[in-house]
């Protein structure tokens, strides 16, 4: 009697769905991970709303206005109160761009180091699935929640600014390049952070060490953001497009590097 195996390579949507569902269940059951995922957007959101509300209630002093004009030439000429609110609203939007760099990093790191610690990688790799497909599914599993969290936080911030802030604050938050940044750059930054997290996780076994290394990804984002808000660098449409293309290229390169590191033999023989 010849036995028959009923297995075959799973199709990609089914694989991605299965990996996502499994990882999300795992993440939701890990209170520390849930806390670390939700805390940064919550703090940024709370601080942003409070700052805009405070600026709406308390008119700025002459000294504050002069300091603001000096630091951010872009807002010169606006009504002082409007300028301060617009400045604050924009400043916190930059902090929103940190969410897709910080939040998915933790999840991506847990997604690989967690499997290492649970010793679940060998049976996983024994399945008829390509490592690239597996990595792609893991990337999506970490990217989607982070993008949803960032978009949700942005929507709450937008609604809060609209109800608490001035016209200038609303205009700042709904400026086309910021909407595009939220819609286009957030997923790209998230993917970059996720794949960087996976890449780092292939080399270290400690979640905290991986987070510290991965945390460096926020530095260029903060730098560009500060330069933009202070008017030192003005990201116009062309600059925005170039930065998006750079992010796409960086995403592809980091994914490729992660795929190189995430090979069956490396994982089973060299990872400890």
């Amino acid at each position: 009697m010849t036995a028959i195996a009923i297995a075959r390579r799973p199709d990609r949507p089914a694989l991605v769905r299965a990996v996502c569902v499994r990882e999300w269940r795992e993440a939701l059951a890990n209170k520390l991970l849930v806390g670390m995922t939700l805390l940064p957007p919550f703090v940024i959101l709370l601080a942003g709303i409070t700052a805009v509300a405070a600026a709406a209630v308390n008119p700025p002093s002459e000294r504050d206005v002069q300091a603001l004009y000096a630091a951010a030439p872009a807002v010169q000429g606006l009504d002082p109160k409007e300028a301060v609110q617009g400045f604050i609203a924009t400043y916190f939007l930059i902090l929103f761009m940190l969410i897709p760099t910080v939040v998915p990093l933790t999840m991506a790191i847990y997604s690989v180091i967690g499997e290492k610690q649970m010793r679940t990688l060998e049976p996983l790799l024994a399945a008829p699935v390509g490592v690239g497909e597996l990595l792609f599914a893991k990337s999506i599993a970490s990217t989607v929640p982070s993008v949803i969290v960032t978009w949700t936080a942005y929507a709450i911030y937008l609604a809060s600014v609209a109800s608490l802030g001035s016209r200038a604050a609303v205009n700042a938050v709904t400026a086309p390049r910021w909407i595009l940044a939220i819609v286009v750059m957030v997923p790209l930054l998230t993917l970059l952070s996720v794949n960087l997290g996976i890449l780092i996780s292939t080399r270290v076994n400690d979640v905290r060490v991986a987070q510290q290394i991965g945390g460096l990804v926020v530095v260029p984002v903060v730098g560009i953001g500060i330069a933009q808000v202070t008017g030192r660098v003005v990201i116009n449409n062309e600059g925005f497009l170039q930065f998006s293309l750079f992010l796409i290229a960086a995403d592809l390169v980091v994914f490729w590097l992660a795929k190189l590191a995430f090979q069956r033999e490396n994982i089973l023989v060299r990872w400890r």
Binding site: A5, A7, R8, R9, R22, R25, E26, A29, N30, M118, R119, T120, L121, E122, P123, L124, A126, P128
Partner: peptide, 16 residues
């Protein structure tokens, strides 16, 4: 696809 393997460690997702 044609083989199955029981590894030294059970390697199960324990929270699930």
């Amino acid at each position: 696809a044609q083989v199955g393997i029981l590894t030294e460690q059970p390697g199960l997702y324990e929270r699930q």
